[in-house]
Design a protein around this nucleic acid. Structure first.
Length: 483
RNA sequence: GGCGGCAUAGCCAAGGGGCUAAGGCAGAGGUCUGCAAAACCUCUAUCCCCGGUUCGAAUCCGGGUGCCGCCUCCA
């Protein structure tokens, strides 16, 4: 079974074969740091994280580059308003972006090149394009002549003469030979204020598309394996990247193009006017669990539009509990004999999980296999039970899956003094229960919950102590006296 | 107008010409329990409509209907 990915370029699933065996080079379109990223942005990063993690799971060595666009029209406008420097202005959004990655357990890429630090590379690339004769100048601006690139449109399947008639044409576009030509270099204007670079191309700043070509080629080479981004970037951004890169090098730019679908919120398009353009911090302030957010954003196939709802967010949190509870249940089962039914269940889960993920990252199917396994293992625990070695086999598989999913809780940690206090209270309660002093028993439970954020589960084996937030066991089961 | 996607249970969501249409959430019932909570188990759909192809379609084809995305430096 081999990994297949849906390639926008060919509009079909293709077996993934990297250029260099065992190595994958990925470029992912990153944030424009003029504002806080919203959950739609994070959906894209989580999709890319899933791709990255699964490639690693499959044994590939991954080199991922994600650009940071730290100069664009919006940030320039903001800088003019606030009087800050461009760097000052974008710094806090960069910081928030990286904090968001950590919160959502998104693995770091190998490189996060910033546009403003790669002006030289962009200038060099533009010069290369000038030498090829595909660039023309108008009022100091440099434009790419797309009519010179015969394959233009091969990604999005858009034909230039079919573009919407009557679309708005900005004032600065009148000077272009063709509406769809795009700016490689923009000459400085008064409204740019302090934001400009003096280069051999003149005083100005780069156009948007050129950074991705320049930076991807710098870090990944002239041809690399995978390029991802949101569907909205397919046209014109990625189309333009292809045009300028391939015109410059004469080589294919990217082998596999992957595009994630957008998300809508409560059935409606996300927009500022509807007030539903949630940022990560909005959701955290409302008290939502970041892992549940990760799970929700991840659990719908990346090419499927995702409807983000608060109902769904709660559901995601509960689904995570079912996974966590299996880990807890395992800790309670200690049969003498190994369960002979276990191996087949685990093997089936593993193989189904992988074949689903191999099928263009079919995460919903993969999660289905995980949950089926959970149900079956629970039945074994309720039945003949699992031995200690059985339990570790299950935990091992869960850990393996979690390399891809990134949702399992690390062991809950409490200071040992607090754990002692907790255990003391649990024993106190057990004593009270033995004496049928229910009032005292309930008081202990109350204190544990309020002061120690610990919830109890009474089971035949004894009392299980769980962290209130994560549902993770805080200590071994506290067995009643005399057991 | 051009390009493209989607329509499966109350909600989310896989699958895909023929074994009992995954899984999760919610709901109902049950086990356990001083109570509670939790956990665990069990149960819940014939796949938007109309035609066609076929021994057989939810799955393929045609036509509808509905929703959505891109064509605007929004992932």
């Amino acid at each position: 079974m081999a990994l297949a990915l849906y390639n926008t370029l060919t509009r079909r699933k293709e077996e993934f074969v990297p250029i260099k065996e065992g190595q994958v080079r990925i470029y992912t379109c990153g944030p424009t740091v003029y504002d806080y990223a919203h959950i739609g942005n994070y959906r894209a990063y989580i999709f890319e994280d899933l791709l990255r993690r699964y490639l690693q799971y499959r044994g590939f060595e991954v080199t991922q580059v994600m650009n940071i666009t730290d100069v664009d029209d919006k940030s320039i406008a903001a800088v003019r308003k606030t009087g800050q420097s461009l760097e000052e202005y974008t710094a806090k959004y960069k910081e928030a972006f990286f904090a968001g990655l950590d919160t959502l357990r998104i693995q770091r890429a190998e490189h996060y090149p910033e546009a403003t630090k790669h002006i030289e590379e962009m200038v060099a690339l533009i010069q290369k394009l000038q030498e090829k004769g595909v660039v023309y100048e108008a009022e100091g601006n440099l434009y790419y002549r797309i009519s010179s690139f015969s394959e233009y449109g091969k990604l999005s399947h858009m034909k230039l003469d079919e573009l919407k008639g009557g679309a708005r044409v900005k004032a600065d576009e009148y000077e272009k030979e063709q509406v769809s030509d795009f700016a490689l270099w923009k000459a400085w204007e008064e409204s740019d204020g302090e934001v400009f670079w003096e280069t051999t191309l003149g005083k100005g700043r780069p156009g948007w598309h050129i950074e991705c070509s320049a930076m991807s080629m710098k870090y990944l080479g002239e041809t690399f394996d995978i390029h991802t981004g949101g569907v909205d970037n397919m046209f014109p951004h990625h189309e333009n990247e292809i045009a300028q890169s391939e015109a410059a090098t004469g080589k294919p730019f990217v082998r596999y193009w992957l595009h994630n679908a957008h998300l809508i919120v409560e059935g409606q398009k996300m927009s500022k006017s509807l007030g539903n353009q949630y940022t990560l911090r909005d959701l955290l302030e409302k008290g939502h669990d970041p892992v549940a957010i990760r799970y929700l954003l991840m659990s719908t196939h990346y090419r499927q539009q995702l409807n983000f709802t608060f109902n769904g967010l709660e559901g995601a949190a509960n689904a995570l509990h079912r996974i966590q509870d299996l880990v807890n249940n395992l800790a309670l089962s200690a049969a003498e004999k190994d369960n002979h039914k276990l191996d087949a269940i685990l093997e089936q889960a593993r193989s189904e999980f992988e074949s689903h993920m191999d099928d263009d990252l079919n995460i919903s199917g993969a999660l289905g296999s995980l949950f089926s396994m959970i149900g079956r293992v629970n039945k074994l625990i309720e039945g003949d039970g699992l031995s200690l070695s059985d339990s570790s086999k299950v935990k091992e598989l869960l850990a393996r899956f979690d390399e891809v999913l990134g949702v399992l809780e690390p062991p809950a940690k409490r200071p040992s003094e607090e754990l002692e206090k907790i255990e003391k209270l649990v024993r106190q309660r057990q004593q009270a229960r033995a004496e049928k002093n229910w009032g005292e028993a309930d008081r202990c439970r109350e204190v544990l919950s309020e002061e120690h954020r610990a919830v109890l589960e009474d089971r035949p084996e004894g009392t299980v102590v769980l962290d209130k937030e994560t549902g993770k066991m805080l200590m071994d089961v506290v067995r009643s006296e005399g057991d």
